[in-house]
Amino acid sequence: MMPLKEGDKIPHFTAKDASGQLFESHTVFGKKAVIIYFYPKDNTPQCTVQACGFRDNYSGFLNLGVDVIGISVDDVASHQKFIQKFNLPFTLLADTDNSIRKLFGVPSKIFGLLPGRVTYLVDSDGIIQKVFDSVLGMKHVTKMLETIKK
């Protein structure tokens, strides 16, 4: 699958959230602006920095009219612990079979051993406005804040 890029519409997908409820993308995308970020794994250093960065800036994102959703291959139980441990206020989705990652065309890093870290800014029409790819978690938070404030 070709990677999604700026100007593309978010495809429909479903996943379990951290409470085990079914998340359907069409209930959010196309209704409000959202940052959707793919990260490798719960409780790893860069992923924790990134999640806590989004947490610490979450009210600022909401005030700018943008919600945040994180996605990794971790299961519902792992996401529940990650949310509780770091008091994360936003939705985490379990992509245990990598189907959403493949749908978005998120590349793997380090010889394909590590799932990539890519963040998308999606407008209220469900159109991607910004794609950011970096191994450094906190850079995703600062890049999204800069982009939204422009």
Rank of each mutant, 00 (worst) to 15 (best):
I69L: 02
G53P: 14
C52P: 07
F38M: 04
A77P: 02
Y37S: 01
L64R: 15
D75F: 13
T48H: 12
P45I: 07
G65Y: 01
L62Q: 11
H79Q: 15
G53V: 06
Q50L: 10
G70T: 03
F54V: 00
D56R: 03
T44S: 11
P40H: 09
V68M: 04
N57H: 14
G65N: 01
I69S: 02
V76R: 04
V34L: 09
Y58E: 08
N57I: 00
D74W: 14
K41V: 13
G53I: 06
A77V: 11
D56I: 02
V68N: 02
P40A: 15
Y37Q: 07
N57Q: 09
V73M: 14
H79A: 05
S59P: 04
A51G: 06
V68E: 03
D67H: 02
R55P: 11
V73Q: 15
T44M: 12
Q46Y: 14
Y37K: 06
H79R: 06
Y58G: 04
I36G: 08
I69P: 04
V49G: 01
D67W: 06
C52N: 07
T44R: 07
T44E: 09
D74A: 08
S59Q: 10
I71A: 06
T44F: 15
R55K: 14
V34D: 07
L62K: 13
V34C: 05
F54Q: 01
R55F: 06
Y39I: 12
Q46W: 12
Y39G: 05
R55N: 15
V73T: 12
V68D: 03
V76W: 12
V34M: 03
A33M: 10
D42T: 10
G65F: 00
F38I: 10
V68A: 06
G65T: 06
T44C: 04
V66T: 05
D75E: 13
D74F: 05
F54A: 00
C52T: 05
Q46P: 02
V34P: 09
G60H: 01
D75H: 11
F54W: 03
N63F: 00
N57F: 00
I35Q: 05
Y37W: 09
G65L: 02
G65K: 03
D67Q: 14
G65C: 01
L62N: 03
H79F: 15
V68H: 05
V66W: 00
D75R: 11
Q46I: 09
A77M: 05
D56Q: 06
F54K: 00
F61T: 02
S72K: 13
D42M: 10
P40Y: 08
Y58M: 02
Q46F: 09
A51W: 11
C47I: 03
G53D: 08
P45Q: 07
T48I: 14
H79I: 13
Y58L: 09
D74M: 10
G70D: 02
S78Q: 11
C47R: 08
T44P: 13
G70W: 05
I36M: 13
D75L: 11
D56N: 14
T44D: 07
Q50E: 08
F61H: 01
G60R: 08
D74P: 10
G65V: 07
D67M: 00
C47L: 13
I35F: 06
Y58F: 15
F54D: 00
I35G: 01
G70Y: 03
Q46V: 13
A51I: 01
D56T: 02
G60Y: 00
D74V: 14
A33K: 15
V68I: 12
G65M: 01
P40V: 09
